[in-house]
Design a protein around this nucleic acid. Structure first.
Lengths: 210, 210
DNA sequence: GTGCAGAAGTATACTGGGTGCAATATAGCC
DNA sequence: GGCTATATTGCACCCAGTATACTTCTGCAC
């Protein structure tokens, strides 16, 4: 990005990272609810008030690290207007191949710890669900751009797609949390993803015959 | 339920309702975030501490009124193991016919105000999303009871179903919030529901050709 | 270098949600 | 009436988050 803005900006960036790192370290060690904002501020050698200048709230200390991917599906659809669903499928499968954290199939210790923290902390999970909702909205808007797709259908489709992606990610994370390596879990993850997108594409049928 | 437990229980019930009513009245008038717990307690003529003996948190003051329906889909599936999806479809359509609040198609002033309050208050919406998550889990478990349905498929199907039901409810509520009467909105609501369940059953296809 | 404007950081004090605890009141029972 | 279990209460406390007013520092002009 822009590195050229001088000492001031660089210092801000370092402060921001110092706070974030201190926060995650403490959260990983003691749990999100067991660590107070004041403790984080102290560990980062910053005043409590300054911490709030960098992060909107306690949740943000954790979630800013993954908030960017919120509208990823919408972006993928924008880039592949002709066949959105296959594009999303390929994108997800590619994510699995790359062990992209967003797919849940990533066993890097930091990533794993981060997801474990989020999934195990109700208030963080709630925030994640809000992100998901927002991503679904963006996806619906993007799908609705197709002139041959009624807005109603676009919204319902977006809801289904978002729910499947979320489910797949959670199952992958679950595999990781159980100690399976990303490489070992890969085949199952691919199978699950193919099943999920197949259900999306071809429907649940009579539920049991397929 | 059990009414026979004497004065004590009856009094508790009355207190609980007094608190709930006072809370909703104030929330409707001034907004959720503009009313403090202390104000609710005062209006209900109860100590702040007692209020927390009856309700787990501020959210609960609003959400206890709809928390019961959390596992409704799971119950419907349990009662119709042969054909879960058509059963859920019929159940939803029946809900629309009865203007059941859970479908969002209900213009009773109190219900409408309640939903408006929830949808317009981020923290309440978050809690709703948690409920939805929990309902999805129950539905997945129930679907997984069918021996011919792999657990993986059950979970993915539950995710899709829950997401569509949620979407349909929100769209209906949106119609109500725009001042359309439940009766007037009924045809659109039915069409949307049929579309939603059709997408679930037959899939999104290539997204645009159906 | 000096000095200044404006941004960044801080101390302090406040509001509001939520909990622990110990004291008091009250329903149900003998 | 007296006893016990439970409801209720007041009080003190912790934490998240905000407002305000004060101090410190960076970047820039001279």
């Amino acid at each position: 990005m822009d590195e050229q803005t001088g000492l001031r900006e660089r210092k801000k960036q370092r402060t921001r990272e110092a706070i974030s790192n201190a926060a995650l370290k403490l959260f990983f060690e003691h749990g999100f609810d067991q660590v107070s904002i004041s403790q984080v501020a102290e560990a980062a050698e910053v005043s409590r008030r300054t911490l709030f200048a960098y992060f909107q709230g306690k949740d943000d200390l954790v979630l800013h690290r993954i908030a960017d991917h919120e509208h990823e599906s919408a972006r993928v659809v924008r880039a592949h207007r002709e066949a959105p669903l296959p594009a999303l499928r390929e994108h997800f499968l590619d994510g699995l191949r790359r062990h992209d954290p967003i797919t849940g199939l990533c066993d890097l210790p930091q990533v794993l710890a981060l997801y474990r923290l989020i999934m195990g902390t109700p208030t963080l999970l709630s925030s994640m669900l809000r992100f998901r909702e927002s991503g679904e909205l963006a996806l619906a808007a993007e799908l609705g751009e197709s002139p041959d797709l009624p807005a109603q259908t676009a919204r319902l489709a977006a809801a289904q797609i978002a729910s499947v992606q979320w489910r797949l990610s959670r199952e992958n994370h679950h595999r990781m949390a159980n100690g399976v390596s990303a490489t070992d879990a890969y085949p199952d993850a691919v199978a699950a993803a193919e099943l999920g997108f197949d259900l999306l594409m071809n429907g649940l049928g009579t539920l049991g015959k397929s």
